Simulated assay, not measured.
Amino acid sequence: MSVSLSENVANKLAIVDSLYRYAAGIDLKDPELIKGAFTEDAVSDFRPAGAKAGFEYPVLEGKETIADALLNSLKPIVTTHSVTNPRVTIDGDKAYLEAIVEAQHLPESDPSRHYLMKNRYDVELLKQQDGWFICRVTVDNVWRTGDPTVLAGV
């Protein structure tokens, strides 16, 4: 079955929107927005980026776990995430999204310090009844600058 151009564009926008929801949920510290970007059994793997920053971060499984872990670890940190260069491939009810995400981190207690990361996000998505949702996201770091101890809440 052939997909119309307008349906293809709408799917691509909805796919990229899942990553926008995730990023906005982190920045707004909104657990429902974060969870709303994921499938129930989603997997988040920040290990490649974490290793380059000098710390270990576990693979997170399940949208509740992902939201809780992110919000707890980033509680003392102000963040801004900017999503750019999204590239989408759709295969039926599955999709793949590659994007660059710039993540700025500043401690609430000392905004003169920062840690800026330019990360590559590799995202697998599933189309469900009410839209596209992330089932797996792997984050690798392209470059970084600043004080990595900011991520530890120090």
Rank of each mutant, 00 (worst) to 15 (best):
L116Y: 09
C135K: 13
V123A: 13
W132R: 02
G92R: 02
Q128F: 00
L126R: 11
L125Q: 12
K118S: 13
I90K: 06
C135N: 15
P111A: 08
K118W: 13
G92D: 05
A95L: 07
K118H: 15
A95S: 09
Q128S: 07
G131D: 03
V101K: 04
Q104H: 14
S112V: 01
S112P: 00
D110K: 13
H114L: 14
H114K: 13
I90R: 04
C135Q: 09
L125D: 00
Q104Y: 09
G131V: 07
F133Q: 06
V123S: 12
K127Q: 11
D91L: 02
E124A: 14
Q128W: 00
D93T: 08
N119T: 14
D110S: 10
W132H: 01
S109D: 14
P111Q: 13
D93Q: 08
I100V: 14
E124F: 09
I100Y: 14
I100G: 01
G92F: 06
H105V: 05
R120M: 12
A99L: 06
H105K: 06
Y96A: 11
Q128M: 10
Q129S: 15
L126I: 07
G92T: 06
R113P: 08
D130F: 01
Y96C: 06
W132L: 00
D130W: 01
E108T: 15
D91H: 07
L116K: 12
V101T: 13
W132I: 01
E102K: 13
S112E: 09
P111W: 04
E124P: 01
E108P: 00
R120Y: 09
Y96M: 08
E102P: 00
H105F: 09
L97Y: 03
A95F: 04
E102H: 12
E102Q: 13
C135V: 05
S109Q: 11
Q129Y: 07
W132E: 00
E124Y: 09
R120T: 11
H105D: 01
S112G: 02
K118C: 11
S109P: 00
A99G: 08
R120V: 10
Y115N: 12
S109F: 10
I134S: 07
W132Q: 00
V123H: 07
Y121T: 09
A103V: 12
M117T: 12
E98K: 12
D130H: 04
Q128L: 14
A103H: 02
I90W: 07
M117L: 14
A103K: 03
D91G: 02
V101P: 01
D93W: 00
Y96S: 11
Q104D: 14
D122A: 15
